[in-house]
Protein backbone atom coordinates (compact mmCIF):
# COMPACT_ATOMS: atom_id res chain seq x y z
CA UNK A 1 0.00 0.00 0.00
CA UNK A 2 2.83 2.38 0.82
CA UNK A 3 4.49 1.58 -2.46
CA UNK A 4 1.16 2.12 -4.27
CA UNK A 5 0.81 5.61 -2.82
CA UNK A 6 4.48 6.31 -3.45
CA UNK A 7 4.15 5.50 -7.16
CA UNK A 8 0.94 7.52 -7.46
CA UNK A 9 2.65 10.45 -5.75
CA UNK A 10 5.70 10.19 -8.06
CA UNK A 11 3.43 10.38 -11.09
CA UNK A 12 1.52 13.36 -9.69
CA UNK A 13 4.71 15.18 -8.77
CA UNK A 14 6.15 14.55 -12.21
CA UNK A 15 3.04 15.96 -13.88
CA UNK A 16 3.00 18.98 -11.60
CA UNK A 17 6.65 19.64 -12.35
CA UNK A 18 6.13 19.44 -16.10
CA UNK A 19 3.06 21.63 -15.79
CA UNK A 20 4.89 24.21 -13.69
CA UNK A 21 7.50 24.48 -16.46
CA UNK A 22 5.30 25.09 -19.47
CA UNK A 23 1.82 25.63 -17.95
CA UNK A 24 0.44 24.44 -21.27
CA UNK A 25 -2.45 22.37 -20.01
CA UNK A 26 -3.47 24.76 -17.29
CA UNK A 27 -3.52 27.85 -19.48
CA UNK A 28 -5.13 26.27 -22.53
CA UNK A 29 -7.82 24.57 -20.45
CA UNK A 30 -8.56 27.71 -18.45
CA UNK A 31 -8.82 29.75 -21.62
CA UNK A 32 -11.05 27.17 -23.23
CA UNK A 33 -13.32 27.03 -20.18
CA UNK A 34 -13.59 30.83 -20.09
CA UNK A 35 -14.51 31.02 -23.77
CA UNK A 36 -17.03 28.22 -23.26
CA UNK A 37 -18.83 30.16 -20.53
CA UNK A 38 -18.78 33.28 -22.70
CA UNK A 39 -20.26 31.45 -25.66
CA UNK A 40 -22.99 30.05 -23.44
CA UNK A 41 -23.70 33.46 -22.01
CA UNK A 42 -24.25 34.82 -25.53
CA UNK A 43 -26.80 32.09 -25.98
CA UNK A 44 -28.53 32.08 -22.64
CA UNK A 45 -28.30 35.59 -21.22
CA UNK A 46 -30.79 38.10 -22.61
CA UNK A 47 -30.62 41.72 -21.46
CA UNK A 48 -28.58 40.85 -18.40
CA UNK A 49 -31.02 38.14 -17.28
CA UNK A 50 -30.05 34.52 -17.59
CA UNK A 51 -32.68 32.14 -18.91
CA UNK A 52 -34.30 30.36 -15.99
CA UNK A 53 -32.19 27.55 -14.61
CA UNK A 54 -29.48 27.76 -17.27
CA UNK A 55 -26.64 28.50 -14.82
CA UNK A 56 -26.30 24.99 -13.39
CA UNK A 57 -26.38 23.44 -16.87
CA UNK A 58 -23.77 25.85 -18.23
CA UNK A 59 -21.55 25.19 -15.23
CA UNK A 60 -21.49 21.43 -15.73
CA UNK A 61 -21.37 21.41 -19.50
CA UNK A 62 -18.36 23.71 -19.40
CA UNK A 63 -16.68 21.39 -16.92
CA UNK A 64 -17.41 18.39 -19.13
CA UNK A 65 -16.08 20.12 -22.26
CA UNK A 66 -12.91 21.46 -20.70
CA UNK A 67 -12.47 18.19 -18.84
CA UNK A 68 -12.49 16.32 -22.14
CA UNK A 69 -9.89 18.71 -23.51
CA UNK A 70 -7.67 18.23 -20.46
CA UNK A 71 -8.07 14.46 -20.49
CA UNK A 72 -7.03 14.27 -24.12
CA UNK A 73 -3.90 16.21 -23.30
CA UNK A 74 -3.12 14.44 -20.05
CA UNK A 75 -1.93 11.27 -21.70
CA UNK A 76 -0.53 12.96 -24.77
CA UNK A 77 2.43 13.74 -22.54
CA UNK A 78 3.00 10.04 -21.90
CA UNK A 79 2.51 9.18 -25.55
CA UNK A 80 4.71 11.88 -27.01
CA UNK A 81 8.07 10.25 -26.45
CA UNK A 82 6.61 6.85 -25.67
CA UNK A 83 7.18 7.46 -21.98
CA UNK A 84 4.06 5.36 -21.40
CA UNK A 85 6.07 2.26 -22.19
CA UNK A 86 8.57 3.27 -19.57
CA UNK A 87 5.75 3.66 -17.07
CA UNK A 88 4.07 0.38 -17.94
CA UNK A 89 7.35 -1.51 -17.88
CA UNK A 90 8.14 -0.34 -14.37
CA UNK A 91 7.58 -3.06 -11.77
CA UNK A 92 4.97 -0.90 -10.07
CA UNK A 93 1.28 -1.58 -9.58
CA UNK A 94 -0.22 -0.28 -12.78
CA UNK A 95 -3.37 0.99 -11.06
CA UNK A 96 -1.06 3.27 -9.06
CA UNK A 97 -0.06 4.95 -12.31
CA UNK A 98 -3.74 5.40 -13.10
CA UNK A 99 -4.37 6.94 -9.70
CA UNK A 100 -1.43 9.30 -10.18
CA UNK A 101 -2.71 10.51 -13.52
CA UNK A 102 -6.24 10.83 -12.13
CA UNK A 103 -5.05 13.01 -9.25
CA UNK A 104 -3.24 15.27 -11.69
CA UNK A 105 -6.38 15.67 -13.78
CA UNK A 106 -8.48 16.37 -10.67
CA UNK A 107 -6.07 19.05 -9.55
CA UNK A 108 -6.18 20.71 -12.94
CA UNK A 109 -9.96 20.57 -13.06
CA UNK A 110 -10.12 22.14 -9.59
CA UNK A 111 -8.46 25.25 -10.99
CA UNK A 112 -10.76 25.23 -14.00
CA UNK A 113 -13.84 24.88 -11.80
CA UNK A 114 -12.79 27.75 -9.55
CA UNK A 115 -12.71 30.00 -12.61
CA UNK A 116 -15.90 28.62 -14.13
CA UNK A 117 -17.89 28.97 -10.91
CA UNK A 118 -16.89 32.59 -10.52
CA UNK A 119 -17.66 33.37 -14.16
CA UNK A 120 -21.06 31.65 -14.09
CA UNK A 121 -21.98 33.32 -10.81
CA UNK A 122 -21.07 36.67 -12.32
CA UNK A 123 -22.39 36.40 -15.88
CA UNK A 124 -25.52 34.40 -15.09
CA UNK A 125 -26.20 36.13 -11.77
CA UNK A 126 -26.49 32.72 -10.16
CA UNK A 127 -26.37 32.54 -6.35
CA UNK A 128 -23.78 29.78 -6.49
CA UNK A 129 -22.10 30.78 -3.25
CA UNK A 130 -25.30 30.76 -1.17
CA UNK A 131 -24.61 27.16 -0.20
CA UNK A 132 -20.93 27.11 -0.97
CA UNK A 133 -20.12 23.88 0.85
CA UNK A 134 -22.86 21.98 -0.89
CA UNK A 135 -21.69 23.26 -4.24
CA UNK A 136 -18.14 22.22 -3.38
CA UNK A 137 -19.37 18.75 -2.43
CA UNK A 138 -21.34 18.31 -5.64
CA UNK A 139 -18.48 19.62 -7.76
CA UNK A 140 -15.90 17.34 -6.13
CA UNK A 141 -18.08 14.26 -6.40
CA UNK A 142 -19.12 14.97 -9.97
CA UNK A 143 -15.56 15.70 -11.05
CA UNK A 144 -14.28 12.50 -9.50
CA UNK A 145 -16.90 10.49 -11.37
CA UNK A 146 -16.22 12.22 -14.65
CA UNK A 147 -12.43 12.16 -14.39
CA UNK A 148 -12.16 8.58 -13.14
CA UNK A 149 -13.86 7.28 -16.28
CA UNK A 150 -12.15 9.88 -18.44
CA UNK A 151 -8.65 9.01 -17.23
CA UNK A 152 -9.21 5.33 -17.93
CA UNK A 153 -10.64 5.94 -21.39
CA UNK A 154 -7.97 8.46 -22.29
CA UNK A 155 -5.27 5.98 -21.29
CA UNK A 156 -6.76 3.07 -23.14
CA UNK A 157 -7.38 5.08 -26.31
CA UNK A 158 -3.69 6.04 -26.52
CA UNK A 159 -2.95 3.17 -28.85
CA UNK A 160 -5.80 3.87 -31.25
CA UNK A 161 -5.40 6.25 -34.11
CA UNK A 162 -8.72 8.09 -33.91
CA UNK A 163 -8.38 8.76 -30.19
CA UNK A 164 -9.24 12.47 -30.43
CA UNK A 165 -12.68 11.58 -31.81
CA UNK A 166 -13.24 8.45 -29.80
CA UNK A 167 -12.62 9.97 -26.37
CA UNK A 168 -15.75 12.16 -26.33
CA UNK A 169 -17.73 9.50 -28.20
CA UNK A 170 -17.09 6.98 -25.41
CA UNK A 171 -16.82 9.36 -22.49
CA UNK A 172 -20.07 11.32 -22.77
CA UNK A 173 -22.55 8.43 -22.85
CA UNK A 174 -20.90 6.80 -19.85
CA UNK A 175 -20.68 10.01 -17.83
CA UNK A 176 -24.06 11.55 -18.69
CA UNK A 177 -25.52 10.20 -15.42
CA UNK A 178 -22.85 12.05 -13.48
CA UNK A 179 -23.56 15.26 -15.36
CA UNK A 180 -27.31 14.88 -14.85
CA UNK A 181 -26.80 14.41 -11.12
CA UNK A 182 -24.43 17.36 -10.93
CA UNK A 183 -26.77 19.64 -12.87
CA UNK A 184 -29.84 18.59 -10.89
CA UNK A 185 -28.06 18.92 -7.56
CA UNK A 186 -26.71 22.36 -8.44
CA UNK A 187 -30.11 23.43 -9.71
CA UNK A 188 -31.61 22.48 -6.36
CA UNK A 189 -29.12 24.85 -4.73
CA UNK A 190 -29.56 27.89 -6.97
CA UNK A 191 -33.32 27.87 -7.45
CA UNK A 192 -35.15 30.66 -5.62
CA UNK A 193 -36.18 28.24 -2.85
CA UNK A 194 -33.07 26.06 -2.32
CA UNK A 195 -33.90 22.43 -1.66
CA UNK A 196 -31.07 21.02 0.41
CA UNK A 197 -32.69 17.62 0.85
CA UNK A 198 -32.80 17.20 -2.91
CA UNK A 199 -29.18 18.30 -3.23
CA UNK A 200 -28.26 15.70 -0.63
CA UNK A 201 -30.11 12.99 -2.57
CA UNK A 202 -28.19 13.83 -5.74
CA UNK A 203 -24.91 14.00 -3.83
CA UNK A 204 -25.47 10.54 -2.40
CA UNK A 205 -26.28 9.20 -5.86
CA UNK A 206 -22.98 10.71 -7.03
CA UNK A 207 -21.13 8.92 -4.24
CA UNK A 208 -22.67 5.68 -5.41
CA UNK A 209 -21.64 6.29 -9.02
CA UNK A 210 -18.12 7.37 -8.04
CA UNK A 211 -17.56 4.21 -6.07
CA UNK A 212 -18.76 2.00 -8.93
CA UNK A 213 -16.79 3.88 -11.61
CA UNK A 214 -13.57 4.08 -9.61
CA UNK A 215 -13.66 0.41 -8.68
CA UNK A 216 -14.31 -0.60 -12.25
CA UNK A 217 -11.56 1.68 -13.58
CA UNK A 218 -8.96 0.39 -11.10
CA UNK A 219 -9.98 -3.14 -11.90
CA UNK A 220 -9.82 -2.87 -15.69
CA UNK A 221 -6.81 -0.57 -16.05
CA UNK A 222 -4.21 -3.33 -15.98
CA UNK A 223 -5.75 -5.72 -18.56
CA UNK A 224 -6.88 -2.89 -20.81
CA UNK A 225 -3.38 -1.42 -21.03
CA UNK A 226 -1.73 -4.66 -22.22
CA UNK A 227 -1.29 -4.62 -25.97
Amino acid sequence: MRRFLQVAWLVVRKDLRVESRNKEMLLTTLFFAASCVLVFSFGFVRGGEAIDGSASGVLWITIAFSGTLALGRAFERERHHDALRGLLLAPADRPAIYVGKLLGVLLLLAFVEALVVVMVAFLFRAPLFRHGWWLLTLLSLGTIGFASVGTLFSAMLLRTRSRAVLLPVLLYPVTIPVLIMGVSGTFALVQPEPDLALARLWASMLVFFDVVFLTLALWTFEPVMTE
Binding site: K14, V18, R77, H81, L89
Partner: peptide, 16 residues
Protein backbone atom coordinates in the same frame (compact mmCIF):
# COMPACT_ATOMS: atom_id res chain seq x y z
CA UNK B 1 11.92 -5.31 -13.01
CA UNK B 2 14.53 -7.33 -14.94
CA UNK B 3 13.75 -6.00 -18.39
CA UNK B 4 15.13 -2.85 -19.93
CA UNK B 5 13.65 -1.52 -23.14
CA UNK B 6 14.92 1.38 -25.20
CA UNK B 7 12.51 1.90 -28.08
CA UNK B 8 13.35 4.26 -30.89
CA UNK B 9 11.39 6.88 -29.01
CA UNK B 10 13.23 8.30 -26.01
CA UNK B 11 10.78 7.47 -23.22
CA UNK B 12 11.79 10.68 -21.49
CA UNK B 13 9.92 13.82 -20.53
CA UNK B 14 11.51 16.68 -22.48
CA UNK B 15 10.22 19.30 -20.04
CA UNK B 16 12.13 17.74 -17.15
Amino acid sequence: AQIGFLSHELQLYPEL
